[in-house]
Amino acid sequence: MKESSRSVLGYKKLKIPYVIQSKTDEPKGLAIMLPGIGYTVKSPLFHFSSGAFLNKEYDVLHVIYPYPSTDYEDFSFEEITSALIHDVSTVLNEVIDHTIYKSYYVIGKSFGTMAIPTVLDMLPIPNTKAIWLTPRLIDAPVFETLKTCKQDSLCVIGDKDPFYDAKKMDHIILNPSIECMIPTDANHALEVDQDILTSIDTVRSVIKSIDDFITLKNGVLNHEL
């Protein structure tokens, strides 16, 4: 596997690192990984989903935003959110300007899902899919995009997640473009409190759903089903 580490100057000229992983010289597309603040690209959901995309000959883009650092300690949550959207857009523009991809997936976890609406606006609708992991349903753009987006999407949130809202999920489920997965008793980490083995099974089922979603929604691979 090849790995290229780079950076851009983001919000307030602060450095935003990113990494592109690749297993082929002719990738089928690009998977854009937007982690949470505390849930990094090295955490299980991103580690294994990155592997799923690499195995299907997609390049993987990890945006490594440094918001827990002291550079951001005086930022309000609203300004951190503005920085996220600005920084993700800047990284994506840099990557797209230098490479032509035919297919895109954007995968966000929690805080990272707040940048998905902007990313979906930047990319061609027919060639873009989204995976929302524990989305912040309290964020209006996130909820409205989940209700109305036309891009094929997978939404995963546990019923014990503090951002879970049954009434909002009832609206999201009505969107024909979205497949929803609501693991029973799963918290914000998509794990079950005080139950390690069930937590492992839950994470495994989420990764399988992601892998199935990539395969079923990727026209290039449909002939293999």
Rank of each mutant, 00 (worst) to 15 (best):
K2W: 12
S4K: 11
S7Q: 08
S7K: 13
L9H: 10
L9S: 06
G10A: 11
Y11G: 09
Y11E: 04
K13D: 14
L14R: 15
I16Y: 12
I16V: 15
Y18A: 10
V19A: 06
V19K: 13
S22G: 10
S22Q: 15
P27F: 13
L30C: 07
A31C: 06
I32M: 03
M33I: 12
P35I: 07
I37R: 15
G38S: 13
Y39Q: 00
T40C: 08
V41L: 10
K42R: 01
L45K: 06
H47Y: 05
H47S: 07
F48W: 04
S49H: 00
A52N: 08
F53N: 06
F53G: 02
N55C: 14
N55P: 11
Y58P: 02
D59F: 15
L61A: 09
V63D: 01
I64S: 15
I64C: 12
P66Q: 15
Y67F: 15
S69G: 15
T70R: 07
D71H: 15
S76N: 13
I80A: 02
I80E: 05
T81H: 11
S82H: 06
I85M: 04
H86T: 08
D87E: 03
D87I: 00
V88M: 03
V88L: 02
V88C: 03
L92R: 03
L92Y: 07
L92V: 04
L92S: 00
I96V: 11
Y101I: 13
K102R: 13
G108L: 03
K109F: 10
S110Y: 06
F111W: 04
G112Y: 07
I116M: 00
I116C: 02
T118C: 02
L120A: 04
L123A: 01
P124N: 05
I125M: 12
P126V: 01
N127Q: 00
I131Y: 09
I131F: 14
W132Q: 05
L133C: 07
P135M: 14
I138Y: 13
A140C: 09
A140K: 15
V142F: 10
E144R: 15
T145C: 12
K147N: 12
K147G: 15
T148L: 12
C149W: 09
D152F: 10
S153P: 05
I157M: 12
I157K: 01
G158C: 09
D159I: 14
P162G: 09
A166P: 03
M169S: 12
D170V: 01
D170R: 00
H171K: 02
I172Q: 07
I172G: 04
N175T: 02
N175D: 08
N175I: 09
S177T: 09
E179H: 05
C180N: 13
C180V: 15
I182A: 10
P183W: 14
D185S: 14
A186Y: 02
A186C: 06
H188F: 08
A189R: 07
A189W: 09
V192N: 10
T198C: 14
I200Q: 06
I200G: 04
D201W: 05
T202A: 11
T202C: 12
R204E: 11
S205M: 02
S205W: 01
S205P: 03
V206K: 01
I207V: 06
S209L: 05
S209T: 14
S209G: 10
S209V: 04
D211V: 07
D212Q: 06
F213R: 08
H223C: 00
